[in-house]
Design a protein around this nucleic acid. Structure first.
Lengths: 249, 249
DNA sequence: TGAGTTGTTCCGCATTGCGGAACATAATTT
DNA sequence: AAATTATGTTCCGCAATGCGGAACAACTCA
């Protein structure tokens, strides 16, 4: 498709994964036409890909003939998690912090310009936004995203900034300014915060875990009405900093 | 490869997914040669596939040049989970049952001859075997696997039996006999059990959830020393049966 | 019934991805 | 240091593979 196309790039594989990735949270079953539109591929191509994915068990067909991701894709993700030993070490301390504070505690890694959660402890009956292993949140406007950004080498920060600028378009200058403020604050305090900048009613603080590979950060979040920003900074942030230090290699 | 090969089957996609699926729990990073062996593919082919998967963010390369699954694969699994509304409805009641009994409670679906967990509540500090969303256990020797088997239509049971016979080979008759016993017990009591048949020190009971699509079953398990089979049947099983009934559509 | 969906299948073409072999690069051995 | 084994990457010509337009089929709604 590109003129400078890569002899090494396997298009058919990429397209098949595009089909799987076309499913967003909240989607139910999708038909071939819908998938073709989302992926920008001809129907016949998608038909072959869905056929193949069904045979392999990664999609299943419901009674109406539409396709939904099958449990097999879960097992792929499980293998990804099982290599992260930091995650196992973090689980118990995270749970304790969550219980002591009554807030949700999460562990995340960066994937492009988003953060993927790899472990979560939610305070009980916290409904609303999804807070699940495998779900993602933006990098620039969340506490955990900023923490991961702070942990990057300058060259990588630059790359990420390019991606973000692309993504936010005209809104980028404003977001960039707030990211800049976060960076200054991080330099002074050692943690990142987002007070309602991602979800209006959610406050959060986060800290990168030094030496983690892949780089991870730990996040503590809760409803805005519970605590003022000052109390987040004074009471919660130090506990998160301490936990991050304890988990550092 | 096959003479009667399918014009519709996209080999390159299947091979790429084979590479991702080659990672088992406990694997760390794998090199191209290792992957080539596991998948039975030539090195150069695997090299192209890993290259593509890296570009797409599903694999990442560590400092030694070996590959490991990247967080992007988690997001695929997340989309699969988010379509299962039964899972959300089940979460709270599962947690309550787990707390009341001090046992682990899991929700699973069948994938071929294995069961994939889609939701788990573990009793605290239950270590040892993995009990994570996305992990799998066998069908024929576990309580939850048997429960899912019982929920199948006879024709599907037959198909599964063929797969199992293949898998177990010479050991199948013995396993089949115990599965047969389980079926009789299920007919009489409405639940399935496995007292140490999968893991020697683990006892479990499970019940299929009527009307669930995809078919799911709920499982309750704990260490063998805690309860005798009689008490599992008398005290725990009724609670699981009740929960399954409550979750039925 | 006909016009709108949808998903599936056909089929000839050229692109795509194949895979052996040659080429690097690194880590061990003799 | 040369030799050996192991790795991962790249080349390149060939043909099998997967492409995608178009025809087909099945199903729904006026």
């Amino acid at each position: 498709m590109n003129e400078d196309q890569d002899r090494l790039f396997v298009t058919a594989l990429a397209r098949g994964l595009d089909v799987l990735a076309a499913y967003q949270a909240g989607d139910r079953a999708l038909g071939n036409t819908e998938l073709a539109q989302r992926c920008g591929l001809p129907k016949s191509t998608v038909s072959r890909l869905t056929y193949t994915l069904c045979k392999l068990g990664y999609l299943s067909q419901d009674e109406s003939g539409k396709y939904r991701p099958a449990p097999a894709v879960l097992t792929l993700g499980f293998a990804a998690l099982s290599g992260l030993d930091l995650r196992e070490r973090a689980r118990e301390p995270m749970r304790r912090l969550s219980e002591e504070t009554g807030l949700s505690v999460t562990l995340g890694v960066r994937q492009g310009t988003r953060v993927v959660y790899v472990e979560t402890c939610r305070a009980l009956t916290r409904v609303g936004i999804r807070l699940e292993v495998g779900s993602t949140v933006p990098l620039a406007t969340t506490a955990i995203g900023r923490a991961l950004y702070m942990a990057l080498a300058p060259a990588e920060q630059q790359e990420v900034v390019c991606l973000l600028a692309d993504e936010y378009g005209a809104r980028w200058p404003e977001v960039a300014a707030r990211l800049q403020v976060a960076q200054t604050t991080y330099g002074e305090t050692g943690f990142c915060a987002s007070y309602g900048e991602f979800e209006p009613d959610i406050h959060a603080v986060a800290v990168p875990i030094a030496g983690s590979a892949p780089a991870m950060a730990i996040n503590c979040s809760g409803p805005a009405y519970r605590l003022t920003p000052a109390r987040w900074a004074e009471e919660i942030a130090p506990q998160v900093v301490k936990l991050a230090a304890q988990l550092a290699v």
